[in-house]
Design a protein around this nucleic acid. Structure first.
Length: 430
RNA sequence: GUGAUUGUAGCUCAGUUGGUUAGAGCGCCAGGUUGUGGCCCUGGAGGUCGGGGGUUCGAGUCCCCUCAUUCACCCCA
């Protein structure tokens, strides 16, 4: 066992699993294009203030889960991004992309970092794919984002998902409601748990979605946000729901759904999977019109987006056996060296095959023939090309199909021609 | 940050109330088959028993510390 091991909360992805990642990433990218989203990549770190400003200084993420450090003595603190939205918004505002084109549709597949205690479906380094739709305030914008997300799940074949959705109203609605909620909770303040007491001042809405059963009892009789919504917010929400229904998407309205990032307004949503343990949120998002303003934009930028946890998605898919077809692809041919003294000639032949676009493996460890063929089986090579004294003398090579065990003899050019015909168009030839 | 859980071969795991040289299956390597894989047979390599300290004539086994793992709280994707 090595003296060194992966950092707590991080993990290696080996080739067997990598195949699954590639598959999911391809589906995401393909559908993103279908919905008109373009890919963006932003740096893994940003100035710390960006996250304090956007996610909210009172949130747990900013309060205790960020990897922050100071690269230059006395310089500004920077932070490994704990989420993507802030960085994307920062990039769009900095480049003034909305001036070039007022609606921006961007997607990403990126790594995030949060200093939490690792657990099933929760790591310190993790990946999300997500999308941000900036510059459009219509309910259709939020709906499109949700539909895109659900379409990805559908294409991947995921079952057992639950989409919960709520509207948080506009800023005024929430302000009025916040006051009402505080007034209701104030007499019960002594019964609140520690976290809820803290939220009482900073963000009382978050008390609503506490998992603590005692909090839930207290909250049960609280005034409802829906009674404080402006007609504007109600209309917007109903329109969003209508779009979802129109697309045949099942959802549950959950008036207690609040979500932990401060920048949400109007629609907020979350998807959970029954396949995951305690960390069952597969994805979530919502509308965040005020974020641009927080980041110094002169005006509000209507915006909606979502993020999905890649690791959780993979876990759910693995549990549902959705990766049966994603076996690692083997090489077209394994060059078997019959006597060690012929290795150099065989190596040249392998090179020729590779220049012809044929994926080729040759045993570099100079093992026995039996071992070479075992290796060829192990990596699912399609065929074996035998190279020995007889072949080099005659120029005729035996090519064995490792699946059917049939064997044919070709000249070297004949081998190339034959294998090129065998190679699938979208397979090993790239 | 809190509470539990588990650390023995590459992997999955045995290992009795503390008692010789720590085992099995799978995998790996080689041979049986001197130029043809999968099945079978035979053999081999591979272990600081997570690490440190203690108790003991003797510790994989008991005690303490520590590191790591996993799960849950919390939070979130």
């Amino acid at each position: 066992m090595s003296h060194y091991q992966v950092v707590k909360g991080a993990r290696d992805i080996f080739p067997d699993e990598m195949v699954q990642w590639k598959y999911v990433e391809e589906v995401v990218s393909r559908l993103a294009v279908t919905y008109g989203f373009s890919e963006i990549r932003t740096p893994v770190f940003e100035y710390t203030e960006l996250f304090q400003r956007s996610i909210g200084a009172s949130t747990d993420i900013v309060g205790k889960e960020m990897f922050s450090f100071q690269p230059d003595p006395g310089g500004r603190s920077i932070t490994l991004r704990p989420e993507m939205t802030a960085g994307v918004m920062r990039a769009v505002l900095q480049k003034n992309l909305l001036a070039a084109s007022p609606v921006q549709k961007l997607y990403y597949i990126s790594e995030l970092f949060r200093k939490e205690r690792p657990q099933a479906g929760r790591q310190r380094q993790f990946s999300q794919f997500g999308a941000e739709l900036l510059g459009a305030s219509s309910p259709a914008a939020v709906a499109e984002v949700i539909i895109f997300m659900m379409h990805v799940f559908e294409s991947l074949g995921l079952k057992g998902l639950r989409l919960r959705i709520n509207t948080l109203g506009n800023r005024d609605d929430r302000q009025k409601y916040r006051e009402a909620l505080r007034a209701y909770l104030a007499p019960s303040f002594d019964r609140l748990d520690e976290a809820s007491r803290e939220r009482f001042e900073k963000n009382p809405l978050r008390i609503l979605d506490s998992k603590n059963p005692e909090m839930q009892d207290i909250v049960a009789g609280a005034p409802k946000l829906r009674d404080y919504l402006s007609s504007d917010a109600v209309d917007d929400f109903e329109k969003v729901l209508a779009y979802l229904s129109g697309r045949g998407i099942d959802f549950q309205i959950d008036h207690l759904l609040v979500r932990g990032l401060d920048y949400y307004s109007y629609t907020a949503f979350e998807v959970t999977s029954s396949e995951l343990g305690a960390q069952d949120a597969l994805g979530g998002g919502g509308r965040y019109d005020s974020l641009a303003l927080e980041l110094g934009s002169p005006s509000e930028v209507p915006a909606a987006g979502f993020a999905v946890g890649m690791e959780r998605l993979l876990i759910a898919m693995q549990k549902q056996g959705l990766f049966q077809q994603q076996a690692p692809e083997g090489p077209s041919v394994f060059v078997v060296v019959q006597q060690p003294e012929h290795f150099d000639r065989a190596f040249e032949i392998a090179g020729k095959l590779r220049r012809s676009g044929i994926s080729t493996v040759i045993d570099l460890a100079r093992r026995s023939m039996k071992a070479q063929l075992r290796e060829a089986n192990r990596m699912h090579a399609a065929s074996a090309l035998f190279v020995g004294g007889d072949e080099l003398a005659s120029g005729l090579y035996a090519l064995k199909n490792l699946v059917s065990s049939s064997q044919e003899t070709f000249s070297l050019d004949g081998v190339v021609t034959f294998l090129q015909q065998q190679t699938p168009v979208n397979g090993n030839l790239r």
